[in-house]
Design a protein around this nucleic acid. Structure first.
Lengths: 182, 182
DNA sequence: CAGTTCTTTCAGAAACTTCTGAAAGTTCAG
DNA sequence: CTGAACTTTCAGAAGTTTCTGAAAGAACTG
């Protein structure tokens, strides 16, 4: 016999693992996605030990994972009156989460690449061989691509902030997308 | 004294490592980015041994790397008349490369997630607790987000341009405060 | 301020990824 | 065929990331 609690857990695991996989694919630890998902689906703050049990993780891993999630402002720590323990709840505004990641992570890399390619271009400028000239042309192309990406990221961050601030894409208000038609 | 050949190599290393780092950040092996970059900058086909030497990699690693680059259609194998060895040249069409990756990699994951969340929704539909109902609402939101992403990817691929113009990632139907042309 | 409860830290274990280099395989000229 | 030139494969090495769990640390409570 399958209880409703078991069914809930099964669905929770499915979604947690799915989100965990995406998150891992994007270069974070799978555990970050799993923990966030359980908190998100729960809809109310949960304690660390509750999470530890539901996801079969060690207390140490849970502590580190929650710390990292908070650094990314994706999970909040909330006190609960009359409770000794700390509770945690998920940030539900997906735009807020995504923009934070893009701003801190993607931007950093794009800039780092741009700077290094610029440096290489400076060197190639004074290499008077055919090889050097050909490479310079191509390096400049890479450079303009990096600059393009930098611009896209900046515009992405600016535009959404302007239009959706306080109105997060996946905020509690349902009715986001229509019926599927694939 | 620094020769022009040494300067070329220095610039080549700088760019190769920069591209390698981005590529790694995007979930591929660093070596893929480094090898592609050397071929790209060279502008002409190079042999495996040439690459092995320039990048200080083992022959085994080079063989595997070139194989993977070819699978991603990012490097082509070219024969050279009168030469026994095989030569390799870089695909220079960035759009072609990016669209291939997006089509095969991102799409796969978005769909996989959508399917798993759909499955979980089906389970939650028959869980008659408050917990279950709340989670179902949220799961449906995740689902609509996955569908949104699927749509964005498909439109991006259909647009067939690498300049990213108008690439508002989370664009819904209307265009917002657009300084850029449609 | 001693005890209880919960959280964080961290060294080592485990798991996973990538690389090396020798051996096996392939191709081709003579 | 045979051997030279080059490529691929793969088992084990090396490197990297993530997790475990015990111990130290905090935060209350009575």
């Amino acid at each position: 016999m399958t209880t409703t609690a078991q069914m809930y857990q099964e669905a929770e695991q499915l979604i947690a693992d799915a989100v965990g996989d995406v998150i891992e694919h994007w270069g974070f630890r799978k555990a970050l996605g799993r923990v966030w998902t359980v908190l998100y689906l729960a809809g109310e703050p949960l304690s660390a030990s509750e999470l530890t049990e539901r996801l079969s993780m060690s207390s140490g891993a849970m502590s580190m994972t929650l710390k990292e999630l908070q650094e990314w402002a994706v999970v909040r720590r909330v006190g609960r009156p009359g409770e000794r323990r700390e509770f945690f709840e998920a940030e539900t505004d997906l735009w807020k989460m995504i923009s934070k990641v893009v701003a801190e992570r993607e931007r950093f890399w794009v800039r780092s690449v741009r700077e290094r390619v610029e440096q290489a271009c400076a060197i190639l400028k004074v290499v008077p061989t055919d090889e050097g000239r050909g490479a310079l042309t191509k390096a400049k192309l890479l450079l303009s691509f990096a600059q393009l990406a930098e611009g896209v990221i900046d515009r992405f961050l600016a535009s959404r902030r302007a239009d959706f601030s306080g109105f997060g894409l996946l905020e509690k208000t349902p009715k986001v997308a229509g019926p599927e038609k694939r």
